[in-house]
Amino acid sequence: MDILVCIKQVPETNEVEVDEKTGVLKRDGIDSKMNPYDLYAIETALQLKEEQGGRVTVLTMGPPQAEEIIREGFMMGADAGYILSDRRFAGADTLATGYTLASGVKKIGEFDLLICGMQTTDGDTAQVGPAIAEILQIPHVAYVNKIEGVTETNLTVQKDMADSIERVEVSFPALITVTKEVNQPRLPSFKRKLETRDWEIKMLTLDDFADRKEEHYGLKGSPTQVERIFPPESNVEKTTWEGSGEELAGLIYNKLKEMKFV
């Protein structure tokens, strides 16, 4: 079974703050890590490979530094890794990101199954997985929280639908996005680290793709435009009460009564 997992590098913390006056994001350091949901995606792929045999490839679109997360994928057990890196990919929204990743997939080869995390911790849209599936014209199942069974031609999974759990079967080629309930990702192994240290990570640019039209990638290929970024607003009119426990309880009680909650 040939499986491809899409992984993204995200900031270590999302505790960014916006300076109200200047509109600048304040950040301490720029440490980054693999999007946590993508660890579950890799684990899902590795478990399927253990059952069915095959190969697991990891793929990311990002700056050359994204090599770190590809290496982490190797340390967990992935067999090959690619980075799609090109300044012309910068400024991509989810459509352009999906298009770039799908172009990369077409270039790399044929896969039975593509796996994405359910969302990222920075952009947080959950849109890239379905976008890739649409471009490749394959079915997708989002929010998979359990893999029930796999054969050479299809996969049976459970997906979380908020009010219900659905069991569905999907035939290959297909794409799934996974939640954190799907498994417990293994830790990167030190032994694998030594073994894979010299493995090559293949870099692809726009020039490697079949579609080389710049207007399909990056900012040019992005219909959405971020007009501005600002801090979450704080509230409206407010009343503050201070005093003894007794006084405060009385003030709350009177207000609740006035508002007919008691």
């Binding site: 999302n14 960014v16 703050e17 911790t121 920075d122 947080d124 971020v226 501005r228 970024i229 801090p231």
Partner: peptide
């Protein structure tokens, strides 16, 4: 975005 730490107008 960023876990609710910033707002973006799109």
């Amino acid at each position: 975005a960023f876990g609710g730490n910033i707002m973006a107008q799109i």
